[in-house]
Design a protein around this nucleic acid. Structure first.
Lengths: 151, 151
DNA sequence: GGAATATATTTCGATATCGAAACATTAGAC
DNA sequence: GTCTAATGTTTCGATATCGAAATATATTCC
């Protein structure tokens, strides 16, 4: 029954590939997230919010949901903590009063300006264990996988 | 100042590659984790613990830490909840009474036996958006990245 | 223009997750 | 053999994270 065996080898390949994908992602994460926390008191999600606003300007919480790939209730919590630490400010959208616009404070801007270059160079250094061609090929395959699944 | 520009293009490549890696991993996760929760009431970590014990036999909590890549205190919490749901049982190691050995109950074994094939075929189906060669190449590059960073 | 529906955010309750400190037990030094 | 250091687990306090329900506001449909 060849189909059966083929099914199994497909499963083994898929599973091994996915495990390697998960491990490599985790390995990078473990190198880049703790420094944010230890040196600047920022969690991964807090940093993601700061970075998004830094690059894109003020965003609503709904837009932040999409950028950082978290639920609405989670964004509320994360922004609460950032606001408490005076790194962002919430402001009601006057045109649609359901919406909360989140923007950087001066303090938040200063922090992200300091942290971002360090973060980027840490990632660059880690990824440089791969050749440029390997990085491009990894990017291509991941992109294909991601868009095929998530659209 | 060519070095400066080279630094920047390296950073752009590394960052883009890492973002694609993160997104593709996330895209797969979003497809495979919610069904575990919705259909069987299992969180990702709970399933990871059950799967590890299923494959490897009874493990200490310290060994589980290494397998599921979480902190010791987290494993305590996850095993607490699994024990409450009667999916695993803790037993003191008589040879070293600091150690808690975690093993499947009948109920846990039955559950993992049901869930695992569905989980595997879901992953296989998602990864099959890539050719076998692409899966192998993705695995190879991820492995290189992961081992270079984590050892 | 008021009722029904849709959308943005918050609240709530549960689990995950971490690091530091506490605790229990073992292993090593002497 | 006892004191000390190391190891395995738990506890504690904080943040993350989700989904469901609640709330506030906007939009749509007669």
């Amino acid at each position: 029954m060849p189909t059966h065996y083929k099914g199994k080898t497909d499963e083994v390949l898929a599973l091994n590939t996915f495990i390697k994908l998960a491990r490599s992602f985790n390995a990078v994460q473990v190198q880049i997230i703790p420094p944010l926390q230890k040196d600047y008191g920022l969690t991964e999600s807090q940093f993601a919010v700061l970075e998004a606003i830094h690059h894109l300007g003020p965003l609503s919480q709904g837009q932040l949901c999409q950028k950082i790939l978290r639920s609405g209730s989670n964004v509320t919590t994360v922004v609460d903590n950032l606001e408490r630490d005076k790194l962002v400010r919430r402001e009601r959208d006057e045109a649609d009063r359901r919406v909360q616009i989140v923007q950087l404070t001066e303090r938040g801007r200063a922090l992200v300006t300091t942290v971002l270059p360090l973060h980027v160079s840490r990632i660059t250094s880690l990824m440089s264990t791969l050749t440029k061609d390997e990085q491009r090929e990894l990017g291509r395959i991941c992109r294909k996988l991601g868009t095929a699944i998530a659209g």
